[in-house]
Simulated scan of single mutants.
Amino acid sequence: MGRVTVRDKVLRIRDGSASERVDTMVVEEPLEIRLDGSPLSITMRTPGHDFDLAAGFLVGEGVIARESDLVAIRYCAGATEDGSNTYNVLDVTLAAGVPVPDTSLERNFYTSSSCGLCGKASLDAVRTQAPWNVAGDGLRIGVDTLTALPDRLRAAQRVFDRTGGLHAAGLFTPEGELLALREDVGRHNAVDKLVGWALRSDRVPLADTVLMVSGRASFELVQKAWMAGIPMMAAVSAPSSLAVELAAEAGMTLVGFLRGSSMNVYAGRQRILLEGAPSAPPAATEGIRVPGR
Rank of each mutant, 00 (worst) to 15 (best):
G97S: 11
L171R: 04
L178W: 11
G170P: 06
A250R: 15
T24L: 00
N88H: 09
A283E: 04
T5V: 15
F257P: 01
A155M: 12
G60Q: 07
R21T: 15
E67C: 15
R45K: 13
S84N: 10
A228N: 07
V89N: 01
P47R: 10
R162W: 05
D15F: 06
V159F: 03
V134H: 14
N88K: 08
E245A: 14
G164K: 04
L199N: 10
A18C: 04
Y75E: 12
P231V: 01
L31Q: 07
Y87P: 02
A130K: 00
V126I: 05
F51C: 04
T147G: 03
I272Y: 03
K9G: 02
V185Y: 08
Q157M: 15
V255M: 07
S262K: 03
W132E: 09
L40R: 08
A277Q: 13
L242P: 00
L211P: 12
L105H: 04
R34D: 04
D151G: 13
F109N: 13
H167F: 15
G260F: 11
D137F: 00
D151F: 09
V290N: 12
E175K: 03
R14Y: 01
A72Q: 11
T103M: 08
M227G: 07
E220R: 13
D69S: 10
V255N: 06
